[in-house]
């Protein structure tokens, strides 16, 4: 009984908001003005949920850092942790395949890393966790889609069949029993339609 989980984990996976994708250097791929607005809307939405967030874990890429900077303003006092595990990449070769995107060599490196991110961050609460937790992960579309497939035990090759808007919220619930529920996938209904993008 001492080893049995007692608490529920609420995982909020946030896709970074719109960014300038012209440059090839990550440091120059900063948020657009609309992207900054989107992040404000996402921050407002998260703050309005009325839950006490335990931490924000974010990808170390520029667009995720900048999205986190804005979201954090709406969630004062919530600790931020940066991780390379959540950086964007090619998680697994998609099925059906896509003809215009073939990063074969990247699957080996990115796939192992993104799988490590899944195993590291997505699991039932530890036995010592007494209270339910609410954690935010600010990262990327491919990473979120792969995590959703893995968490639901759906074929991970299907990740590319899903589509996520910028600044959208994906909410996974992990019960002490290990049961997983996807409560929302890519919710952006809190944004006006003219501010919704998918870049």
């Amino acid at each position: 009984d001492n080893l049995r989980a007692k608490a529920t984990r609420h995982i909020f996976l946030i896709r970074h908001s719109q960014y300038n994708s012209e440059s090839s250097l990550d440091k120059d791929r900063t948020l657009t003005e609309l992207g900054r607005e989107q992040a404000e809307l996402t921050g407002c939405r998260l703050a309005s949920l009325g839950v006490k967030f335990d931490k924000i874990v974010h990808s170390s890429m520029t667009r995720a850092i900048e999205t986190t900077d804005i979201i954090s303003k709406h969630l004062p006092g919530v600790n931020r942790i940066s991780t390379d595990l959540l950086r964007e990449g090619a998680p697994i070769e998609p099925d059906p395949p896509v003809s215009d995107w073939k990063p074969e060599a990247r699957y080996y490196e990115d796939g192992a890393r993104i799988e490590a991110a899944f195993r590291n961050f997505i699991h039932r609460a530890d036995a010592k966790q007494e209270e339910d937790s609410y954690e935010i992960f600010v990262c990327h579309a491919n990473v979120i889609r792969y995590i959703v497939c893995r968490a639901l035990q759906f074929p991970p090759e299907g990740w590319l069949r899903m589509s996520l808007n910028n600044g959208s919220i994906t909410h996974l619930v992990i019960r002490p029993s290990g049961r997983v529920a996807l409560r929302t996938l890519g919710d952006s209904g809190f944004m006006p339609p003219d501010k919704i993008t998918r870049t």
Binding site: I92, R119, H123, Q153, F154, P156, G178
Partner: peptide, 20 residues
């Protein structure tokens, strides 16, 4: 291929491998 894809739920899904 990571993870089961048979449609049968694995309740020990997060206990099979050590966390990295």
């Amino acid at each position: 291929r990571p993870g089961p894809t048979s449609g049968v739920w694995d309740s020990n899904w997060d206990k099979r491998e050590p966390r990295s």
